[in-house]
Nucleic acid binder design. Sequence first.
DNA 1: AATATTGTTCAGCA
DNA 2: GTGCTGAACAATAT
Length: 261
Amino acid sequence: VPELPEVEGYARYLASHALDQKIARVDLRDERILTIPKRRLERAVIGRKFRSVRRHGKHLFASTDGETWLHLHFGMTGDLAYYIDPAKEPRFARVIFDFENGAHLAYEDMRLFGYVDLVRDPDESIRDLGLGPDPLDPAFGLRAFRGLLSRRRGAIKSLLMSQDVIAGLGNLYVDEALFRSSIHPRRPVDGLDAEEARTLFSNIRRILQDVIARHARGADLSRRYLVMNREEGERCPACGGTIKRTVVFGRTTYYCGRHQK
DNA sequence: AATATTGTTCAGCA
DNA sequence: GTGCTGAACAATAT
């Protein structure tokens, strides 16, 4: 599931493969993926080139040499593929940008929960979407994180999942951060002490950066990650306790019944 | 054939 | 009104 680290991977992938090549045509395979009319997408990209890439949370923006940015959200099953040989086309390609040089950039999304959009300006779009700060933004520090936690009362997992509070964490990495921080997903936010808030903040960053780095190397995640042990009854890779399963904020949640308090 | 998944929207409660 | 939780919904492979 594309959360912040995966979308960061897509952003780097697009930046290293698909920039500065003239787009000859747009091959739209399923209109349902568009938030805008087909004609507008074509007008915005045909004859132009992608120039730069930005990411905020789970959202990706690619500038064109025109007035607009391509805006991608990946839902649950979204991905990008750059290829020359048409046989490499992903099975669930929804939009394919055909470059003049014969290469292709496909946006694929089996379950269609993502979307392909156009915006005038990423910052304006981030505001319109109501997104909170990106946890890897260098300007986002412990102070700002503590500010997000203050005057809140719900379950910590619900808060971290809310994109309008902090943008980019999803079900898996929220569970991971709480696991690493020994915090139970249902703990009320106002019950966390200063030390726990600090630990949680640094673990969120550490986990996201580690996953990004491992993805970049094509490496697997550590077996010590909860993500690798998401099954009820499994042994906790940290303390040997038992992994429990429950539902928080409408999402399947795994945690260690022994060390997450 | 039930299940899993995300983000959005709505209903309900304190 | 605000903040929060839970349910329903979209789509589709397994």
